Each structure stands twice: as C-alpha cells, then as structure tokens.
Simulated assay, not measured.
Amino acid sequence: MSAALLIIDMQIGLFQGQEKPHDGERMLANIQHLIALARHRQVPIFAVRHTGPAGSPIAASSAFWQLLPALELDAANATFVDKLRPNAFHGTELARQLNSANIEDLYIVGMKTQFCIDSTCRAAADLGFKPLLVADAHTCMDTPALPAQAIIEHHHATLGAAFVRLINTADIAF
C-alpha cells in the first residue's frame, strides 16, 4: 500500500495573518516532523496552496500565498497543487497525480479544519482514497460562534465517524 503526505494551505498569509491559528506552533512542529519522516521513508509529499482572487492577500505568487519557509518545501522535494476552492481535488490534478503514484493512504494535515481540511477529507473518501486525518496536525482559528478547539473536536467526531481514520503524529510510521 502506498502512502502520501498531503499538506493543505500552510501559507504565510493564513498561518501568520491577523488571526493566529489555534496551537499553531505545536501543529507546525508536528507537520515538520511528518515532512522529515516522509522524506526519510521516501513518501511523496503534496503541498496545496489556496489561491485567492487577483488583488487578495493570497493571490497567486503574492508573498502571503507562499508556503511557510519553515516547511522547507520546494519543487525538488514536493508536488505543488494550487486550488481555488476548499476541496483540494476540485478543479486540480491532485486525484490524477495520486492515482498515477498508486497512492491509497492519504495523510492529511494543515489548515483550516472546518473548510479545506473538512472538504478535502470528504472528497478523498468519495474518490476511493483512504484518508487519515492527523488529529494533532491540523487547526483553525476561533470564530464568533465557536472556539477553535471546539471546531476541531467536532470535526474529529464527524469526520472520524464516516470519512477518515484519525491518527496522531506520534503513531505514524508511513
């Protein structure tokens, strides 16, 4: 069985914007650990960037659109996927790329839990992949309705019930 690490929207403008991600530094450290482990095990890494409309802070090629430098990802060690919608599969070549690489197990990490993580997890399952949501390597921000921790817990209960297998960073061996 082949595995891949799917990193969603770990971009400067989203991670370092006005609103800070819940437990962001711990989550970033977990993703960095998974990147190192994936490299060591020769597991493919796919890095997704959300692209905003022209003139927005995360418009293509803007400074805030770039992935966090701390991830140390480039075209030599990761496949980049640019998306316009929350679902990383919608309007992209991601499914084709994963199928071409014979990927089944898809370890999903990144931001934001209630948007891009949620829709990508559901789509991955619908497309026949085996999504594994890394429970301690995704996050979001507080909202007026709910604190980030409640959003994360709710998504673990919902996604874990029907769409993904939940796993923690420490339990991943690829």
Results as ranks from 00 to 15, higher is better:
residue 61 S to D: 14
residue 2 S to D: 11
residue 94 L to M: 08
residue 130 K to Q: 11
residue 69 P to I: 06
residue 71 L to T: 10
residue 116 C to S: 13
residue 153 E to C: 11
residue 18 Q to L: 12
residue 108 I to N: 05
residue 53 P to K: 14
residue 30 N to D: 13
residue 167 I to L: 12
residue 135 A to V: 10
residue 42 Q to D: 15
residue 34 L to G: 14
residue 20 K to D: 05
residue 14 L to A: 10
residue 132 L to H: 15
residue 107 Y to E: 02
residue 39 R to A: 15
residue 73 L to H: 09
residue 27 M to T: 13
residue 7 I to A: 03
residue 86 P to N: 10
residue 169 T to H: 09
residue 101 A to W: 05
residue 102 N to E: 12
residue 34 L to D: 11
residue 166 L to N: 04
residue 161 A to I: 01
residue 77 N to M: 08
residue 159 L to G: 03
residue 112 K to V: 12
residue 97 Q to V: 03
residue 141 M to K: 15
residue 121 C to A: 11
residue 45 I to N: 10
residue 135 A to M: 10
residue 67 L to Q: 09
residue 14 L to G: 04
residue 9 D to P: 12
residue 54 A to M: 08
residue 95 A to R: 04
residue 73 L to V: 04
residue 65 W to L: 01
residue 4 A to S: 09
residue 125 A to P: 00
residue 46 F to C: 14
residue 124 A to I: 02
residue 60 A to G: 02
residue 2 S to V: 08
residue 27 M to I: 15
residue 118 D to E: 14
residue 172 I to C: 02
residue 131 P to M: 10
residue 23 D to E: 15
residue 42 Q to A: 14
residue 19 E to Y: 09
residue 82 D to E: 06
residue 64 F to K: 15
residue 63 A to T: 11
residue 38 A to E: 06
residue 44 P to G: 02
residue 26 R to I: 12
residue 69 P to D: 08
residue 33 H to M: 13
residue 54 A to Q: 12
residue 162 A to K: 09
residue 40 H to M: 15
residue 70 A to S: 11
residue 46 F to V: 07
residue 94 L to E: 05
residue 9 D to M: 10
residue 101 A to P: 04
residue 170 A to P: 04
residue 88 A to H: 04
residue 91 G to Q: 00
residue 46 F to T: 03
residue 60 A to M: 12
residue 131 P to C: 05
residue 115 F to Q: 14
residue 122 R to Y: 05
residue 109 V to G: 05
residue 68 L to R: 01
residue 127 L to I: 00
residue 3 A to F: 09
residue 87 N to W: 04
residue 131 P to R: 03
residue 4 A to M: 06
residue 154 H to D: 03
residue 130 K to A: 13
residue 128 G to R: 02
residue 34 L to P: 07
residue 80 F to K: 07
residue 132 L to F: 15
residue 8 I to A: 00
residue 47 A to L: 13
residue 167 I to E: 06
residue 154 H to A: 10
residue 31 I to Y: 03
residue 2 S to G: 00
residue 123 A to K: 08
residue 99 N to E: 11
residue 146 L to K: 14
residue 68 L to H: 08
residue 52 G to V: 05
residue 153 E to T: 10
residue 38 A to C: 10
residue 12 I to Q: 01
residue 17 G to C: 01
residue 40 H to I: 12
residue 132 L to G: 00
residue 125 A to F: 14
residue 78 A to Y: 03
residue 164 V to P: 01
residue 174 F to A: 04
residue 139 T to R: 10
residue 31 I to M: 09
residue 100 S to L: 14
residue 98 L to P: 07
residue 51 T to H: 08
residue 150 A to R: 15
residue 58 I to P: 07
residue 163 F to S: 12
residue 34 L to W: 13
residue 65 W to I: 05
residue 76 A to E: 12
residue 115 F to D: 13
residue 43 V to R: 09
residue 59 A to E: 11
residue 75 A to I: 03
residue 141 M to F: 15
residue 35 I to D: 07
residue 166 L to D: 08
residue 81 V to T: 06
residue 140 C to D: 08
residue 13 G to H: 00
residue 146 L to W: 13
residue 141 M to E: 14
residue 115 F to H: 14
residue 134 V to K: 03
residue 66 Q to V: 05
residue 67 L to S: 07
residue 68 L to N: 04
residue 113 T to P: 02
residue 60 A to K: 15
residue 148 A to L: 06
residue 152 I to E: 08
residue 100 S to T: 10
residue 106 L to Y: 00
residue 117 I to E: 04
